[in-house]
Design a protein around this nucleic acid. Structure first.
Lengths: 200, 200, 200, 200
DNA sequence: ACCTCCGGGACTGCCCGTTTCT
DNA sequence: AGAAACGGGCAGTCCCGGAGGT
């Protein structure tokens, strides 16, 4: 009855989630080229299930992308939840920098997805644009909040700052992959100081 | 004599170059996944020649990476050849930004190679590290030159500036792929202004 | 029901059998180097099916080896099914000699597999050892049966005889490939006479 | 002049010999499938030289076969050089058994070549037949010598014995590859005893 | 509705034996 | 004798669909 159909649906959702988790883990570890079979095997089901839930490889990649950006967003939003607008903006920057430069496989995957969205996988472009717009708007709103509560000076263009910070932030992501670990604090510190000068 | 013994070697080099050019073109257009055969066909030879010159797909990718960074380096070096240290530094920044944000396939390829070097293709790491070190050192030397000729103020840490600029620059590369074209001038302009404030 | 549940599995088994038969035929005709595609084409399916059932070329070769030895065993066992222990032993010898020296492609394949098991294909060693042990034990048991029913004299070591006969038998296999056909009867006859003297 | 051309020819012969040695070593180690390049590299020359000397892969295999049988013949002939005809015959048997069952790579190669001659490489058949005929005739001649000097009884058919012994001998070769080492002495001992009974 | 089994094609990188030019 | 290029072929494997089972 209701129970039966709920149970079934729940188990299906569980399978879907296991597949998604497995895909993220595998993609993060071995790159987006990882085979369907490997992902399915990791999740303990067969390729058929994958195909059933995501339709195609591309469908899976898109679902992974959505899931990954959500995961990241939850992380950084938690770190910019309180304080003045200025504090929340800087908190978000610090959190982003820390996570992206963590060199964790998950973040390598996220970066690769961003890149592919702009290159080899146009199907991801829609997602990418939405994500980046939301991120920019969130930053801009933080700047505005800071200007409203007086923690950020009023004569800067809030949107311009949002855009710039967002860009520079993602910028560091790329280079950090190629820099020795001890340099990284240095880099972000430089950037943060410039920014504080700008906002004060 | 010299001609005779040179001829074969020269023709071999010509073939190698044609293969490299074809690979860059194909990789830029269709991604690094492009097949051996396609590249060889574009160059007008067979897979055998490709295998002869580069040994493996990976060998080809490495050669392409080396060639691509060299090509890029020549481009930007030409744009920072004259003027004061400050002018040369800013010239180099402008040239880099212009090229990377050109959205030309060649630069999408170069970016993808940088990413892969930090992720799925560890064989490229050696090349990547060397390239980035040279770039940083070149920037630092420009800052020092500027300090020597008085065009850059003396109380900044030349190396820190080199590192930061280099990082931010490559940073913009990533985001620009995902931003509408009209935003891009804006972004770089913001960054350039910050930098000029810093150096003046 | 039973039919339904059997259908899929049965058709898969049928495919597997067709592939195995085709592989034996091809391998016998063209050597173990025969391509995957050729085997699959002979069986009327694609490489996908082959890969699905046997995993790899090596898996196929192993399956072929197992199947071939089973096929041979059934042949010779039928020829040593009745009579005194002595008659059954000699019957088995005659059958083996006749089959191996038949120069039929199937037996050339079987010999090649035996050889490869001892050389270039160590993966087959396990199968080979099991097969040879079973064969030896079967022979030994026939000798013992003969000693029990009085058709073989009691003062010989049953196991030693089993081993020797088995060895000599397989030995003839090799040489017969290189001898003109009219010699072959001669050779086995010599051996058989020696053996009868030994057992009487 | 003469010296010059002799030197040249000598160095060519040296190259040929190095290639042959390398081929035997490689073939023995890795099977007949070993590539031209590997052999050439082992000999310190390029494929061109190999092709120059042997014309084709097949030519190389044939040359290897000839060289290998010669090498083996020299070994066993040395061990049957003195004594009565009977002693020389048994010496030859012992030497053959010892060498073939040595499991040395060289003998695995020799066996594989014999097999291929009867199967996948008909080009070797001519060589194989010649070799086996010579071997048989040599054995037969030893039997006749034994009959002449009284060490072998006169009422056996010399040729039949030669053929049988030769066959059984090569027979053991095959099985020995698949038997545990401690069995092997047993097997040959059984055979040798039967033979001595026959000849006495 | 969810999932498994079986199979289909297509493709790719690798490598190999050979010829040609010098 | 070497260096370069050729062209063919093969194993592996990948993504995907459809028939069936539960």
């Amino acid at each position: 009855m209701a129970t039966a159909s709920t149970t079934r649906a729940a188990s299906a959702q569980a399978t879907r989630r296991r597949l998604l988790d497995a895909a993220i883990r595998r993609f993060a570890a071995d790159g987006l080229g990882t085979s369907f079979d490997a992902v399915a095997a990791d999740a303990g089901v067969t390729k058929g299930a994958l195909y059933h839930h995501f339709g195609s490889k591309d469908g899976l990649v898109q679902a992974v992308y959505r899931e990954a950006v959500n995961r990241h967003a939850q992380q950084v939003l938690a770190d910019s939840a309180q304080g003045s607008g200025r504090e929340r903006l800087l908190g978000l920057i610090d959190a982003s920098a820390r996570l992206y430069t963590s060199r964790e496989p998950f973040y390598r995957l996220l970066i690769a997805l961003h890149i592919d969205a702009a290159g080899a996988r146009p199907q991801l472009l829609g997602i990418a644009e939405r994500v980046h717009r939301q991120q920019r708007e969130h930053m801009t709103s933080l700047v505005r909040a800071g200007q409203a509560d007086g923690s950020i000076r009023a004569d800067v263009d809030a949107e311009a700052v949002g855009v710039t910070v967002n860009a520079a932030l993602e910028g560091f992501v790329l280079v950090h992959q190629l820099e020795p670990a001890e340099r990284q604090g240095h880099l972000v510190a430089q950037f943060r100081r410039l920014l504080e000068d700008l906002l004060a």
